[in-house]
Amino acid sequence: MSIDLKASWEIFRNEFVVNRGYTRVLTGLEHTLIIAVVGLVIGIVLGTLLAVTKVVPQNTKGAKIFSKLTDIYVGLFRGTPMVVQLLLMYYVLFPLIGLAKIPALVVAIIAFGMNSGAYVCEIMRSGILSVDKGQMEAGRALGMGYGRTMVKIIIPQAVKNILPTLGNEFISLVKETSVASFITVIDLTKAFQQIGSATYDYFIPYIVLALCYLVIVYIITLIVKLIERRMRASDRR
């Protein structure tokens, strides 16, 4: 199969610029970023809460129950593919609880957030365990409660320790959003697909699509590095 690169490029340029294909791409980019960023925020909040149920002293019945529930949650979300979770939520779960009219984008944000929560839980748990036990003891000895010491002392140090891993999680989240179109969300991938199907030429659109993801991930990497350097301030010697 031979491909006329120049012709392909002309077709793509025509669709992208003249037929205003870039508006689609911008909408797609917007959706991709919204899902990834809001999803990550939900994931971090949820994951941290879940992680705390795992590290809290297991000496009461309530603590044990919460820990078990977390196990089940993490098991479910890690044990099924992201696409399946999306489909289930959009076509089964939300209609079931009478929320069939909820926009697909919102469902995608919730699904990615909950999925990310399961992974962040494990990351955060290891981060919390990596903080010296003496830090919690010092906080408690000064009269602060478990929760307050957790929020003010332990979690900030844990986050610092797991920042590179958390950056990784964000990167995979961005890339995973490419399956959001399964539930009719126009994301970056879908936008380029639409350009391709409008011109019957997918060659250039898919190359540009890949480049788009590469650039996004590169920017995230830079941001994570920047944050990391700022948070390392407390152990510069």
Binding site: D132, A138, P156, Q157
Partner: peptide, 11 residues
Amino acid sequence: MVFQHFNLFNN
């Protein structure tokens, strides 16, 4: 309380 390993809050 004063600890053997100081336990100042590192953050």
